[in-house]
């Protein structure tokens, strides 16, 4: 009877311990998600001119909010745009982060701490501030680059043109996100046992070979983690474009999927359409990140 596993009578303590988490999860996640789901199947029905009390009722909408959201060409365009944004941003940002992490981890690099902090620093700048800062640099008439390029007889390219604006926004993401991912990878690199390096060096591996054959495979889990998180974060891009939107014609109020949600909810005053759009986006991101994790688990973590 001394082994606690022998006890079959229900005990209150475990429930008491999980209760706060369960209650908070229910109140702060399940209930709002459930309410959003409910709203996404409702709509506001107006009669006549729609003025005066009682002219507007909330009625069941079926799938109509979903069908009209998905049939909206502006929303479809924003979905394609956010995928392209992710494809541009994630490899560049993670590539730079990995490069910096490997450089910092290599022996005999001077100014290590200074370099680490200065690469990390942009991450601590709030996104809205960073976006305004870059926005001012992009606007030709107020940008210092106009003057600097002018010294060499060059003119400032239009960074808010239809075909460049996506890269201009992605640049802000790279600038702000590289440092954080670098720290994650660098921390993973520090945890690799140094015997492995010694063994590789005795076998005659160069620094580059050590990096490619030992370090990168050893931190693969960290790379997958940062990759999945970065993809999820880029699909939710909102702050940068909404801050830059007033500065240019090329970023419309519905330029990215989450901006579409914001526009429906707060500009068009249609929370039902906003709820349906949110659910559609959340489902898409969930499926995408789940399959990415499955895929990478199979290739990287298998056999460990």
């Amino acid at each position: 009877m001394k082994d606690p596993r022998d006890r079959t009578a229900p005990r209150a303590a475990p429930y008491a311990f999980v209760a706060p988490a369960v209650i908070l999860f229910t109140l702060l996640v399940l209930v709002p998600v459930g309410y959003t789901l409910y709203l996404s199947f409702q709509k506001s029905q107006v009669s006549g001119l729609g003025l005066g009390a009682g002219a507007r009722r909330q009625v069941f909408a079926g799938w109509s909010n979903y069908t009209s959201a998905l049939a909206d060409p502006a929303f479809d365009a924003s979905l394609l745009r956010v995928l392209l944004y992710s494809v541009v941003l994630v490899p560049v940002m993670l590539g730079l982060a990995l490069l910096f992490a490997l450089l910092l981890d290599a022996r005999r690099v001077g100014l290590q701490r200074f370099a680490r902090i200065s690469i990390f620093l942009p991450y601590s700048v709030p996104i809205v501030v960073a976006s305004l800062l870059w926005g001012f640099l992009y606007l030709p008439t107020v940008s210092p680059f106009t003057t600097i390029l002018g010294w060499f007889g060059l003119s400032m390219p239009d960074l808010f043109a239809t075909h460049t604006v996506l890269f201009s926004v992605a640049n802000i993401g790279v600038w702000g996100g590289t440092g954080f991912n670098m720290i994650v990878m660098y921390t993973a690199l520090r945890a690799v046992p140094s015997e492995l390096y010694e063994a590789a060096r005795i076998d005659g591996a160069s620094q580059l070979q050590v990096a490619l054959r030992v370090k990168i495979p050893m931190i693969a889990p960290a790379l997958v983690l940062t990759g999945v998180f970065s993809i999820i974060a880029t699909l939710q891009v909102f702050n940068e474009p909404i801050t830059l939107s007033p500065l240019t014609n090329t970023i419309s109020p519905v330029w990215m999927p989450l901006m579409k949600v914001y526009d429906e909810a707060f500009t068009n005053n249609n929370i039902y359409a906003a709820a349906a759009t949110s659910i559609a986006i959340a489902a898409g991101i969930f499926v995408l990140s789940y399959s990415l994790l499955r895929l990478s688990n199979r290739h990287i973590f298998e056999g460990r």
């Binding site: 107006v46 001119l49 729609g50 239809t162 014609n249 970023i251 419309s252 109020p253 526009d263």
Partner: peptide
Amino acid sequence: GPDVNVAYSEFTTAFGTATTS
């Protein structure tokens, strides 16, 4: 009208494209 907000939001999108091009 009762949905000036919809019209104004659409204006920014639609005329944004037209003024740029």
